[in-house]
Amino acid sequence: MIEVTDHDGVAILSLNHGPVNALDLEILTELPTALARVADARAVVLTGEGRCFSAGVDLKRVIDGGAGYVQEFLPALSTAAFAWFTHPKPTVAAVNGHALAGGCVLGAAADVTLMSGGTIGLTELGAGVPFPTVPLEIMRYACAAVSSLVLTAKTIGLAEAVSIGLVDQAVIPEELMSTALKHARKLAAVPADVYALSKKQLQQPAVQRIETLREQDDPGVTEIWGSPATRDFLAEFMRSLGRK
Results as ranks from 00 to 15, higher is better:
residue 126 G to P: 11
residue 124 E to Q: 14
residue 147 S to R: 07
residue 128 G to R: 12
residue 120 I to V: 08
residue 119 T to W: 07
residue 130 P to T: 04
residue 121 G to Q: 06
residue 113 T to G: 06
residue 112 V to S: 07
residue 125 L to V: 02
residue 118 G to R: 03
residue 165 G to L: 04
residue 148 S to R: 14
residue 155 T to A: 11
residue 161 A to Q: 10
residue 140 R to F: 12
residue 136 L to D: 03
residue 121 G to L: 09
residue 159 A to P: 01
residue 139 M to T: 02
residue 131 F to N: 01
residue 140 R to H: 10
residue 165 G to D: 13
residue 138 I to N: 06
residue 160 E to P: 06
residue 128 G to P: 04
residue 136 L to P: 01
residue 142 A to I: 06
residue 140 R to L: 15
residue 151 L to W: 09
residue 153 A to C: 05
residue 133 T to W: 07
residue 135 P to V: 00
residue 160 E to F: 11
residue 118 G to T: 06
residue 130 P to E: 03
residue 156 I to S: 06
residue 126 G to N: 08
residue 129 V to G: 03
residue 133 T to K: 10
residue 152 T to A: 08
residue 162 V to W: 05
residue 116 S to I: 00
residue 117 G to T: 10
residue 146 V to N: 02
residue 129 V to N: 00
residue 150 V to A: 01
residue 124 E to H: 14
residue 116 S to M: 05
residue 165 G to K: 13
residue 130 P to N: 07
residue 146 V to D: 09
residue 155 T to H: 12
residue 134 V to Q: 01
residue 141 Y to N: 08
residue 133 T to L: 15
residue 154 K to P: 03
residue 158 L to S: 00
residue 150 V to Q: 04
residue 148 S to K: 15
residue 139 M to F: 03
residue 118 G to P: 02
residue 133 T to A: 09
residue 141 Y to L: 06
residue 132 P to G: 02
residue 120 I to L: 14
residue 137 E to R: 10
residue 127 A to H: 07
residue 165 G to P: 12
residue 124 E to R: 13
residue 140 R to P: 02
residue 163 S to W: 10
residue 126 G to S: 13
residue 134 V to A: 07
residue 159 A to G: 06
residue 128 G to S: 05
residue 139 M to I: 15
residue 130 P to W: 05
residue 145 A to Y: 06
residue 163 S to D: 15
residue 153 A to P: 02
residue 135 P to W: 03
residue 122 L to G: 12
residue 150 V to M: 03
residue 114 L to Q: 01
residue 124 E to M: 12
residue 112 V to I: 14
residue 111 D to K: 03
residue 128 G to H: 03
residue 116 S to Q: 09
